Amino acid sequence: MEMSTLLFFILSVMLGGSLGAGAYYFWSRRLGSNSEPQREATILLERIEKVFKVVMAEGYFTEIYNYQHDKNIWNLIKDKKKALIIAKAKVLVGYDFGKLRYHIEGLEKKMVIDYFPEPEVLSMDTDYKFYDIEQGWLNRFQSDDYTSILNEAKQTMNEKALQSDLPRIATNQVQLMMFQLAATMNWKIDMQLPESNKDILDEYTAYKPIDAGIDSLNKKSDS
């Protein structure tokens, strides 16, 4: 009788342990599946616009941006926050032909340009990474701080792109395209621009590509 009681006890413990392990596995799977992050996106198309924008040059930039803000607490304690941001961007520079003003002289097969727009940044694809983020006890980064930093870094990148040779390259490219296209159709392009517009265009067309030194290479090969 004692042996059967002991055997019943051992079987009960084993059965209870198996049921407990099974219940734990079942509930852990259910809880684990519920712990996955929920994602929901809503995309609204606000409007569609017809544009005539042509990309003529693209450049790749890297910007190292240092941000630091010191906060004085009762003029006794300086609580500062700072961050190092490395930004990479692909910048596309070209022309919005919707801003071009011209008229056609059909009998002479001539297109007269009355106003030629300046090159502009048409698109900027950016990637930002934050490094060495330090915060004080009270002077801490907020979501608005990150937004402001990224906007300022993007504005700086935009200015650097316009100060580079990209606008000059784009200007030379677009004029070459226009004159070649007109020539293939036996048309002419006459630039009758206001003096101020002409000066700006001349400034951009002052760009000269670097010579490849073909003559010197030929001389070396001959020798």
Rank of each mutant, 00 (worst) to 15 (best):
E2S: 07
M3S: 10
S4M: 06
T5N: 10
S12M: 11
S12C: 11
V13W: 07
L15I: 09
G16T: 10
G17R: 00
S18H: 06
A21H: 07
A21S: 14
A23M: 14
Y25T: 06
F26I: 07
W27H: 09
L31Y: 09
P37L: 14
Q38D: 15
R39K: 13
E40M: 10
T42F: 14
T42S: 11
L44I: 12
E46T: 06
E46V: 07
E46H: 02
I48L: 14
E49W: 02
V54P: 08
V55N: 12
V55G: 13
A57H: 03
Y60G: 12
Y60S: 14
Y60V: 10
F61K: 00
E63L: 09
I64T: 13
Y65C: 05
K71E: 00
K78S: 12
K78N: 13
D79A: 01
K81W: 01
I85Y: 05
K88T: 15
K88Q: 15
G94T: 05
Y95Q: 05
Y95D: 13
Y95C: 07
D96M: 06
Y102F: 14
E105A: 05
G106D: 15
E108M: 06
K109S: 15
K110V: 04
M111F: 10
M111S: 09
Y115M: 04
Y115K: 03
Y115C: 04
F116A: 01
E118M: 08
S123V: 00
Y128P: 05
K129H: 10
D132W: 02
I133T: 13
E134D: 14
E134A: 02
W137K: 00
L138G: 02
N139I: 02
R140F: 04
R140G: 02
F141N: 06
D144A: 01
D145A: 01
Y146V: 06
I149P: 02
I149K: 02
L150K: 04
L150Y: 03
E152V: 00
E152M: 01
A153D: 13
K154M: 08
T156S: 10
L162M: 15
Q163Y: 03
P167T: 05
P167Y: 08
A170M: 05
M177H: 07
M177A: 10
F179M: 12
F179W: 01
T184N: 15
T184E: 15
N186W: 06
K188Q: 14
K188R: 11
I189W: 09
M191D: 10
M191I: 02
L193I: 03
L193R: 07
P194W: 01
E195L: 03
S196N: 13
D199P: 00
L201D: 07
E203A: 09
T205W: 04
T205Y: 08
Y207Q: 05
Y207S: 02
I210Q: 11
A212G: 08
K219M: 02
D222E: 09
D222L: 08
S223W: 01
S223V: 04
S223E: 13
